[in-house]
Amino acid sequence: MSQNDTNPFSAIAHLESIKQCIQCGTCSGSCPLADLMDHAPRELFALLREGAFDEVLHSNTPWFCVSCYACMVRCPREIPVTDLMYAFKEVITKQGTAPKNLKMPDMYQAFSHNIKETGKVTESQVMARYGMKHPLDALKNIPLAIKMQMRGRLELKAQKVADPKSITRLFELTEIPKDKP
C-alpha cells in the first residue's frame, strides 16, 4: 500500500494484495448484497489505491458483507476479499466512522455485548438490546417470535458460561486502545 502514514488501513494483513486488483468486478458480481452497498468491493480497493481513505472509512460496504466467501474463492487475483471486509470493519469500528444510520453496527454491537456479558449469545437478548435503538425492527419480529415460542424455539433466559467474568476478562485483555483522533 501507499507509504502514506495517514492510511488508517495500512496495518491490515494482506492489504498489499489489493495492488493486484484488476477491477474485473467478479467480487461485486458474486456478492448477494452488492445492491445495498454504496461502493462495490473492488471500488474500495480502487479508492484505497487512490488514497481516498475517508471514503472507505465511511463506506457502508463492509457492513453489508454476509461472509458468504463467494468473492474470495472466485477472485482471479486471489485477493482475500471477505477477510479484508472484516479487517476494514475492525479499523472503522476503532476509528468510530461507521455510518450513523446503519443498522448493522448496532446489531454487531448488541451481539458483542451479549457475549461480553454472558459468554454466549441468546437471540432474544440480542434482539432486545438492538431493539432499544431500532424499536420498529424489534416490533416487526414479534409475530415470528410468538411462532417460535409456540414450537419451543425461543429461549428468553440468557444462556451463560459458568464464569461470565472470565469472558469479560477476555474482552478486557484483548482490548485495543483507541487511536487518538
Binding site: 463492509p62 454476509v66 461472509s67 471486509m85 472484516y86 479487517a87 470493519k89 475492525e90 469500528t93 454487531y108 451481539f111 458483542s112 451479549n114 457475549i115 459468554g119 454466549k120 449469545v121 458460561v161 459458568a162 464464569d163 469472558i167 477476555l170 474482552f171 485483555l173 484483548t174 482490548e175 485495543i176
Partner: peptide, 26 residues
C-alpha cells in the same frame, strides 16, 4: 465441551481480530 462460549460468529472478526481468535481458541 464443558463451559463452551460463543465462537464470535461473523461479528467478532469485524470488531477485533485478537478477540475473535481468542474466543475461538478458548
Amino acid at each position: 465441551i464443558p463451559d463452551w462460549n460463543c465462537c464470535g460468529a461473523t461479528v467478532m472478526f469485524g470488531e477485533n481480530k485478537l478477540r475473535a481468535t481468542t474466543l475461538a481458541a478458548r
